[in-house]
Design a protein around this nucleic acid. Structure first.
Length: 277
DNA sequence: GTATTTGTTGTTGC
DNA sequence: TGCAACAACAAATA
């Protein structure tokens, strides 16, 4: 499931349950695809006996620091999740990366294994972390940068462009649909066809949806909602995009679902027109 | 058996 | 070269 807000929600779970605690054991599934390119024995040696010092989320990715020099990157892929189970929890089939502390069992579970765990030793965060594009909620995510990117991707549908992590880090399928719906832009509009006013609206809704998604899904400040998605309002497209016969929360007209840019896309034809207005 | 999935990457072809 | 489209990855679910 994880887009930027879900990644932050899962990070907080581990963070709230285990920050400052000592890692007593590191359990891994040998050869699991999530460890592709990672030296798993080195990872285990580096974490055992260290404290879970600190963590942060950037886009869809999570960075954890153990002790002063051990960094672990987690990408949740399509089906990954982080949980804090009781100390006595026995890892199951899809629990590929498990950390034991005195009070809890920290679990990274991922049935489809599109997710990833990376490891790095050093005084500063690794290149694969620092090279992630500037966050949507940062000053670096400017209208000008978005406009320039749309010009470069002029012949691709705007839906496909919103999924490109190099410029829209953390946006995934449902957030892209939510943004386009709020901006009243048809997902098949070519990126190069947007007027300056439409581009500005798109940019603004990227900011708003990123902020709203983080606040409602991951909670504000140190608050962690008990369950994923429990606070998402019915007024979002989110709840209606998979319903058969679903209706647009604003126009009350039927929603449409079709593949755009290789992904199933939901929009409100009454609100999102193909021809510029 | 078929088709679907909130993601990313490598290949192909224009 | 740059960009766009698509298959592949894996496993569960309808």
């Amino acid at each position: 499931m994880p887009e930027l807000a879900e990644a932050e929600f899962f990070r907080k779970r581990w963070h709230c349950a285990a920050r400052g605690k000592m890692i007593r054991a590191v359990l891994t599934h040998d050869g699991a695809k999530i460890f592709r390119g990672t030296d798993v024995p080195a990872l285990q040696r580096a974490l055992r006996g260290q404290r879970f010092a600190w963590s942060e989320t950037k886009a869809k990715q999570i960075l954890l620091r153990f002790g002063d020099h051990a960094w672990v990157g987690v990408h949740l892929g399509m089906s990954g999740e982080l949980r804090a189970e009781p100390a006595c929890y026995e890892p199951r089939k899809h629990d590929h990366f498990v950390l034991k502390i005195a009070e809890h069992t920290l679990v990274f579970s991922d049935p489809r294994m599109f997710g990833r765990v990376q490891f790095h030793r050093g005084a500063v965060p690794p290149p694969w972390w620092t090279k992630i594009a500037p966050e949507i909620r940062s000053d670096a995510f400017t209208l000008e940068a978005v406009a320039a990117f749309l010009r470069r991707r002029a012949r691709a549908p705007i839906k496909a462009v919103l999924l490109m992590q190099e410029r829209f880090p953390g946006i995934g399928n449902w957030m892209a649909d939510e943004i386009l719906w709020r901006a009243a832009l048809h997902p098949r509009r070519l990126a190069g066809s947007l007027t300056p006013a439409e581009t500005k609206t798109l940019w603004r809704e990227c900011h708003r949806v990123a902020r709203l998604a983080l606040d409602t899904i991951a909670g504000k400040g140190n608050y962690l909602p008990p369950d994923l998605n429990t606070h998402i309002p019915r007024s979002w497209l989110f709840w209606h995009r998979w319903e058969d016969g679903g209706r647009c929360p604003r126009t009350k007209r039927r929603l449409v679902r079709e593949k755009v840019g290789g992904r199933t896309t939901c929009w409100s034809p009454a609100r999102q027109k193909l021809s510029p207005r």
